[in-house]
Structure formats: C-alpha cells, structure tokens
Write a protein that binds this DNA or RNA. Sequence first.
DNA 1: TTGTAAGCGTTATCAG
DNA 2: CTGATAACGCTTACAA
Lengths: 334, 334
Amino acid sequence: MAAITIKDIAKALNLSASTVSRALRDSYEIGAATKKLVHDYAQQHHYSPNPIALGLKENKTRAIGIQVPEIDNPFFSQAINGIESVAHDSGYHVLIFQSSESLEREKANLQQMLARRVDGVILSVSAQTNTAEHINEILSTKPLVLFDRIVDDAHCHKVVANSFKAAYEATEYLIRKGKKRIAVIGLPPHLSISKERYGGYLAAIQHYGIAIDPKLICNTGYDIAQIETDIAQLLTQKPDALLSLSDRQAMLCLQALSNRGIIIPSQLSYFCFSNLRMAHLFNPPLNTISQRAFEMGQKAAKLLIEQLQSKHPERIEFQTVRIDADVNIRGSVS
Amino acid sequence: MAAITIKDIAKALNLSASTVSRALRDSYEIGAATKKLVHDYAQQHHYSPNPIALGLKENKTRAIGIQVPEIDNPFFSQAINGIESVAHDSGYHVLIFQSSESLEREKANLQQMLARRVDGVILSVSAQTNTAEHINEILSTKPLVLFDRIVDDAHCHKVVANSFKAAYEATEYLIRKGKKRIAVIGLPPHLSISKERYGGYLAAIQHYGIAIDPKLICNTGYDIAQIETDIAQLLTQKPDALLSLSDRQAMLCLQALSNRGIIIPSQLSYFCFSNLRMAHLFNPPLNTISQRAFEMGQKAAKLLIEQLQSKHPERIEFQTVRIDADVNIRGSVS
DNA sequence: TTGTAAGCGTTATCAG
DNA sequence: CTGATAACGCTTACAA
C-alpha cells in the first residue's frame, strides 16, 4: 500500500494532474462534477498530499524544531507539551532535539534543524552556552524564539519566567519568618536565569537591610559528589534557611542532605525552584517556586507561529514576555 | 542568507550539477582536483544537502515518529530521551506527537505521520485504545514498534516492562510482611499493562493461599474527584496495604489520601508503579516499582532502526522484548 | 572525467 | 473548465 499520488488519481480518472490538484484545493474553476469525482476517489484511496513535495516547492515544511537542555526534566517536558499543543492546532509538527547541556551538541543540533529546513526554532540554551554567535547565525536565516534560558544579545522574541519577582517573594517570606542567614545554592552564573533569581534574592536581602554574607552563597555544579561536599561546607556556616535556585540542583541537594542524615526543616527552612509535581507530599512538604512551563511553551510557540505567518517578517517588534512564577508555601518553614 | 544549493555551486564553479553532486558524495569517477574545489566551496558557503529533495527522491526522510499518551509524564519523557539518543546516533530525527489519551487523536496523529512520510513509528497507545485496526493499517505501510502499552494483535516488535514479575514481587513482599488485605488501585482493564500488573498481583495472592476479595479491587479513572470517592469507598474495606498499578493514579491517589488527612503508613502500607524521581524523599518514603523507561526507549529505537536498515524487511522475526522493572523498597511498610 | 536529462509529487502559469 | 509545462533540489542512468 504505497502512498497514492495526484498522478495516480489523474490516471485513474482520466484527468490531468493539474486538474486533480485544483479539484482537491477546491479551486473555483473546476466543475462540481469533477470535483466530487476527485474528492470521492481521493477519500477512498486515502490520498494525502506529500508534504515533502510541498516543502520542496514552497520551501516550507510546517515543522518547528525545539531544542532543550534535557527532555527528561519536568520543566522542559511541560514546556514541550505546551509547544506541541499550540503547534498541533496550527498544523505544525514538532521536531525534538536535546543539547544534554553541551554547547557543541547545541550547535550541531541547530545545524541539523537548518538542514531539515524547519520553518522556525524554539530554543532554551545549554548550561555551557556563553555566546550568542550560533544563535545569531540561525537568526539570519529563520525565526527563532528563546525561552527560559535565554541569551541577551540575540535579537528575537523571548519568553522567560519572572523569576526575579519569585525569588524576591520567596526570600521576603523567609525574612518575615525571622530568617537572617539565608544560604543560596546557585547555578552556572552566566545563565540568564541565574542572574534573575540571584538578583531577586539579593534585592530582598538588601531591602530588609540584612548584611550579605558571601560565605552563604554556594555556586556548585550538577555533580552529586561535588554537591555533597559543597553542602557540607555551606552547613558549617550555620544558615537558618536554604534557597535553591535550580530544579535539578534542588533535587540533588535534597538527596545530599538526606544522605548526610539532615532532616529539613528541623535544622533549616528550605525553598527551591522546582517544577516537580507532588512536591507537597515530600518530607517535609517542599516550598517551591514553580514556573508555568506549559504556559511558557504555549506562548513561545504562539510567538513563533505568528512570526512565521506574518506578512511582514521584517517589521516584527521583538518582545520579551515575562510570565510570573508561582511561589508555593507548603509549611516547611519553621 | 538563503540556503545554498548544488546548482549554485555548479554555477559558481562552472561545473554541472551532477558533477558537483558526485564530488560531494566522493564518487570515484571525479578528479581529485575538482573534488577539492567543490568541497572547499561547499564548506565555505555552508552547503548542506536539502533533505526534502532527498526524501522526495528516495522516498525516505530519516525521521521517525513517536507517539505517546502524554509527553509530560516522567515515564514517557524518560523513554523519549532514550529514543532520541539512539535515533540521534544513527542519524535519525524525531517527530513528537501525543494522543492525550484519546483514540481519535491517536489515529489522526498516525495519519499525520504517514503524511509526513516518517520512515518508521514508535507508539505507546492511549488509554482509550481498544482496537488494533489503525495500527495494522500503518503496519501495512511502514515499520512500527510498540512499547509499554501495546496491543496484542499487531504483528510487530514490542518492548514492554516485565511488570508481571514486578507486581508479583511487590505483592509477595507485602505478604511476607504479614499483609493479608492488600487493596489494588487498577487502571483501564483493556490496557496491556493492566493485565500484566494485575496478573502479577493475583498470582502472588494465590500462590500464598490468600483469598481474593473483589471488594479490595478498585478500578478507577484519572479524575481526582472520582478517585477521592473511590478511595474513600475502598478504605471502608479496611485494607492493610495498597498497591497502585499506575503512575498517574498513584500520584492522584496520594493526593486524595492527603486531602482526606490519611497518613501513610500509619494506617496502611503503600506500593505503586511510578517513575517519579525522588520518590524516596516523600513522606513517607514511597515504595515504587519503576520501569527502565530510558532503556525501553533505547531498545524500541534500536529495533526500529534495525528494521529500517534491514535488507530483507519481509524476513524480520518480530520479537517481544521484556525489560525487568525495578522494585524499590524504601521502608514505608510497617 | 564530466555533462545531459529524467524523475520524485506538487502547484503556478500559461494555453487552449 | 481543463490540459501541458516548468520549476523546486537532488540523484542517477546514459552519453560524450
């Protein structure tokens, strides 16, 4: 059952390919009788236009490429979900790539997308990404929307979580609960989300006139052994609360604390950025800052598709959309 | 910076398109000098072959379509991760679809994949899927591999978790701990995974000579309100342990119990199928049966790609690969 | 060693 | 109202 083509229909019906094509597209210049004939035949034989041929002609694929640092991460899978749903409704398909936090891989994947001739790209950069060169290269070719982890010097739409605000609010909450030594577990400092989140923390600390103690700030990586060491070091500073700026690190950190037999919140209050579901069923219930990943994905997809379908792509005013993150207090602040 | 084509190179170098094509493919019939000339020019101008044109010619796309019930689910995103990694290494790209547990959507998406001319399909069926018709229709056209949630009467490779064994072991563990009234939260009974998991439970119960009490078996859906009611009903039967057969239901169930103020394990021991990370940090630490999602995805992709690249596709012996699931005891069995 | 031409599925343009 | 033809980018007989 090889796929049927317009030519096959034409042959079977003793028509020309162009007539069939027009009939299928409901062109006004085709007789009703012929139209019906063609439509019925097409229906019966499960005709579907070959998008490859179409793409060749129009230089469009109606496919969009997504690249995220890791698929298997609640935030990103929720975002992909949002992107897919919007794309599907607009007749776009979705090609998935992951950088696995590697800049090399990120570049290679972008090239792959170009080679595949996707119509547009949605990207959240890797932890290694400290340059916008490869992104600007893509931008000279086709629309691209950055989300969550962005780079500043790229001229395009951006969708980010308002994590400055969320970090501020979380920190403020801790301060109001009487915490004075709030330690921070940071993430790679060049990442856009790092600046935002760290900035929110600092702003709150300063606003409430608390001295900033650099020893309470821990910039660690993604390696569990390293984190354990760093956490141990941090704990010697006797913090009374902990704010973790990243999802994966929060989990590793909890793991590390658990490995060391430390029970939160008996010793300290805990707050973390995380999109993990059911965090309130943790022991203790986890205070989280969750980003509206699904909504962010949807918004990114909408912006991209709007741009793709715009009649005047050169006149687009690029915007940076900020979507509030949710601060979820669940009671593990003693 | 529109993408450069073979014709452009040919024109620039005063060669014919075919010569350029052959030079790029390193054909033996091309002079070394010409080859170098062409290669250098291609390099400089970032030539990359248009896979659309290639696909049109060879009727191949080097793309595989994945469809899962929901992307935003730890099991499936881990599986997609595995698929993507294998596909990437073999030069395939990955097109993502989700059925959102709807049979209609599942069918429509499969048609979309056909229309897109993917080379092969990897599918885990929706909760509504109770027929193999649409799958067999695809199978008459191209390779397809089923994973996790399969349908029996489809003639193709299948990758499943050995969940019979896992359910048996989990139940056995509870029995050895002295549990006699082990309640079960089931999932849609026609699903392949339901039969397996439920079967493992039953086999253990019977092997240890415990009477089967139908009132301890609860087949509920995915609706939180419904689950709350059903759980309440179930609890009137005074079970001393609970085994939840599905990930999403397990979470909803925990939620429901938590809403009702029930603390596990003070009243009962709990075991559930779940790929949620950090389950051991729950309150109480959650006993889980986790499937090796990443490995399952990898295996499915390998089988598919092997089939795609086989010289004698008609001679393939279809296999059903069973991958053990892991039973994780974490101490919430009193 | 290189060039020419046909063909993959589709649509737009131009003729009838 | 319908048909023939060219074109999209690429490969591959077949010619030269």
